[in-house]
Computed example of a mutant assay.
Amino acid sequence: MMLAILAAAVIAAPADLTWMAGSWTHEKDGVVTRETWLAPLGGAMSGAGQTNRPGKAARAEFMTITVEPAGLTFTAHVQGQAPTPFVAIASDPGSAVFENKAHDFPQRVMYRRCGENLCAGIEGLVGGKPRAEHWTYRRVAPAD
């Protein structure tokens, strides 16, 4: 069992997510959503996201991906809320899915490379009904 846990930690380390690093943008119907991910360093990745909707204040959040006792963990830091962890349920060289079934919405956070782009999404239930949001980001700057 310990060998399986160690193997999972090696396979699902932030270094395996280098394909996410860089600055990305998505524009649709006047809404601009941006994410920037720093390249993995010291067992962690840090990211920042910003959404601008016409006529509304910008919404920003900070994200980290770290290896925790529960496994590879994406933690969202949203203004006015406690940090929310999502643990990887799947990870391979071009995609990662994180889940927190106890969270209100979303319950899943997903990233994958789609060609030169970065595809991302959140999914879950709201009032018992499925809800999903997806973004196809184009690269605006590589990571350092």
Results as ranks from 00 to 15, higher is better:
His26Tyr: 08
Trp24Ile: 08
Ser23Ile: 10
Ala76Asn: 03
Thr36Lys: 12
Gly80Asn: 07
Leu41Asn: 09
Val32Phe: 05
Gly94Asn: 14
Val87Gln: 08
Ala88Phe: 04
Thr18Glu: 15
Ser23Gly: 12
Ser23Pro: 09
Gly55Phe: 02
Thr33Phe: 13
Thr66Asp: 12
Pro69Met: 09
His26Trp: 07
Ala44His: 05
Pro54Lys: 05
Ala13Glu: 14
Ala21Pro: 07
Thr64Ser: 09
Ala21Thr: 09
Phe98Asn: 00
Trp24Met: 08
Arg59Asp: 09
Thr75Asn: 08
Ala60Lys: 12
Gln50Cys: 10
Gly55Asp: 08
Ala9Asp: 12
Thr66Ala: 09
Ala15Val: 10
Gly94Lys: 14
Ala15Pro: 00
Thr66His: 05
Ile89His: 03
Ala39Met: 10
Ala60His: 06
Thr33Trp: 10
Glu99Pro: 00
Pro14Arg: 06
Ser95Thr: 07
Phe62Ile: 04
Phe86Arg: 01
Thr25Gly: 01
Pro54Ala: 07
Ala58Pro: 13
Ala48Cys: 02
Gly49Cys: 05
Ala70Thr: 07
Arg53Met: 11
Ala96Tyr: 08
Met63Glu: 04
Phe86Asn: 01
Gly55Tyr: 01
Gly22Asp: 02
Ser46Glu: 09
Asp16Leu: 10
Ala48Asn: 05
Phe74Ile: 01
Thr36Gln: 12
Thr51Phe: 05
Gly30His: 04
Pro40Val: 01
Gln81Met: 12
Glu27Val: 15
Gly42Pro: 03
Val97His: 00
Ala57Arg: 07
Gly55Leu: 04
Ser23Asp: 12
Glu68Ser: 01
Glu68Trp: 01
Ala12Pro: 03
Ala96Cys: 14
Met45Tyr: 02
Gln50Pro: 04
Leu72Ala: 08
Ser91Ala: 13
